[in-house]
Amino acid sequence: MNMLVCVSRTPETTAPVKFSADMSEYDGSGVNFIMNPYDEWYALVRALEVKESQGGKVTLFHVGGAESDAVIRKGLAIGADDAVRVDAAPSSSMFVAKQIAEYCKANAIDILFFGKETIDFNGAEVGAMAAEMLDMPYISFAIDMQLDGNNATITREIEGGKEVGEVQTPFALSAAKGLAEQRIANMRGIMMSKRKPINVIPAADAADKATVVKYAYPDAGGDVVYIEPDNMDELVRRLAEEAKVL
């Protein structure tokens, strides 16, 4: 199995969110960046498990500048064989998807892995776009995937339940919690990752069609109203009359 795991880089979850003075750009200075958890914890690990059980190769794919190399190295330390980095800012979902599609057209991929969404912009866009450009089936929010030769049985999350379906390689999926168990890089993995290649390639042309022009902070909520723990009638009254939510 030739597997490509698309990984994105996101601010660490506890990082403060700041913008340029004119509120037009995100300010990542002083922020610690991590690999998007869905990509690292579930997509990458499931790809590694497939490789371990039936052989194959796991390549990481990332669109971003040299500042992303630390995140990519982490994926190599967890066990990916090699990595490709498209040396360009990921300016829009359409741009990123195009880079992935162009690479896959030139390199036959059996399973294309995505995370369910990035935790900064919560787009859930790139995987579906790349799959369409490649005319591949795309199964979103996979929580289980079993392979039997080229046949895959996939369980995906749907509203209030689950769906089980079948598809043959080549296909694309997005990984949700449950697809695999998070792995931590060990010392040997970290040492080996230093010798694994990150192939840096130029970007293919692609136009952005939707881009951020401005950021804003949400309105600060009002103050909390404290209610005595022995006066739950008062809480119920306020929920009914003041908040009108009962």
């Binding site: 998807a97 866009e125 579906a128 776009m129 799959a131 450009m133 979103s140």
Partner: peptide
């Protein structure tokens, strides 16, 4: 979420 990106393309 699986559909919107495809339709956009």
């Amino acid at each position: 979420k699986a559909l919107a990106g495809r339709v956009a393309v």
